[in-house]
Amino acid sequence: MRDAVIVDAVRTPIGKRNGTLAPVHAADLSAQVLNALVHRTGIDPGLVDDVMWGCVTQIGDQSSNIGRIAVLAAGWPEHVPGVTINRACGSSQQAVDSAAHAVMAGQYDIVVAGGVETMTRVPLGAHRTTGQPYGPMVFARYDNFQFNQGVGAELIAERYGLSRRQLDEFSAASHAKAATAIDDGVFDDHVVPIDVDGTKFTTDEGLRRSTTADVLSGLKTSFKPDGVIHAGNSSQISDGASALLITTSDRAAELGLTPIARYHSGAVSGADPITMLLGPIPATRKVLQRTGLTVDDIGVFEVNEAFAPVPLAWLAETGADPDRLNPLGGAIAVGHPLGASGGILMTRLLAQMRRKDLRYGLQTMCEGGGTANATIIELLR
């Protein structure tokens, strides 16, 4: 039976909104990570069967199949195709899953999976200016609820009895862990310097090193006057891209490449679209049940920090070891460039597995509309 392995994984530094990456078009940003894979692995891009590219807001700079446009921007041969995938925040994680499935099925031999989002240039919710994405039948089913992830996060915090102090402490810890990881050079191996107007951008810029729970306690709530969710315990609006090279172990050997990890298994699950952010809980259960593994078998978990209640509710339901959760910080500290975030989380997962010699890692992300992906990878080197 064919396997699927990850040969290399790269990402851009994450730019904050209106920050360093703001001048860079999504196609050009994508091209730089695509070419970084070529440079690092020595692979002929003409051998790539497909580029599967996650992107959420596919209008303006990110319209017209940004996956294909990225291939052209990178200067790759015109015969290399590209496709754009949208599973909301999990778009590039779905790209990784789909690439692995295609390779394991024998339909493709070499795939690049990843994604991009330039939220400065294509703002979150920009698609709503041209129409209503849900439609009257969906609104009728859910009593005209105006689907809003921030409101969903408030509902989750209430359901799990999560206080603002707990959320703010978790968020401050995310900044602290990310700062330590940056200072220790944990990200250096997979972060690609990005050329911006002739200068090199190298470090995630959303990090606030002085953040504490006390500092966060002074921020105004965003969705309810008496609520608990605010900008400081939510993911940052960001710009970025990520890319992974996926093939079989046999094809990697033929090309003289040494894989980092094996794609072990994946699952996707739906959940209530009102509290849509709880999707990682059933997705995690599903992938563990499918494999026979338990949470104790997993050495590290990456649970996207869309809002602080998401990983905390996930912890409460799974019983996982809190010390294994997001040990390098997360989106609250460094940002969440939607279509790129699945690949970004995978680079962090691989970094922690390699530095701590952990056999299994699990990644999961909540997604708009109430779905979630969960993916398990196994370390090879």
Rank of each mutant, 00 (worst) to 15 (best):
T318A: 09
E305K: 06
A316P: 03
P311T: 12
G319C: 10
V303W: 05
L315D: 02
N304E: 14
V295W: 00
E317H: 07
D323S: 15
P309M: 11
D296L: 06
E302Q: 13
I298D: 00
G299Y: 00
A313N: 07
V303G: 03
D323V: 04
E317L: 07
W314C: 05
G299E: 00
A316G: 05
V300G: 00
E302N: 04
F301R: 02
E317C: 05
V295P: 00
T318S: 15
P322E: 03
P322C: 03
P311K: 11
L312N: 02
L315W: 04
D323A: 15
F307P: 10
D323M: 08
V303Q: 04
D297R: 05
T318F: 09
T291K: 08
A313D: 07
V300T: 12
V310L: 08
E305N: 05
D323T: 14
N304L: 15
V295C: 03
I298H: 01
V310M: 06
E317K: 06
P309S: 05
P309Y: 08
T291P: 09
L293T: 10
I298G: 00
G292L: 10
F307H: 10
N304D: 12
I298W: 01
L293S: 10
A316Y: 05
T294V: 14
V300N: 00
A320D: 04
A306C: 12
R290I: 05
V300I: 08
A306E: 10
P309A: 06
G292M: 12
P311A: 13
D297F: 07
G292Y: 11
A320R: 04
E317R: 09
L293C: 11
V310F: 07
F301I: 02
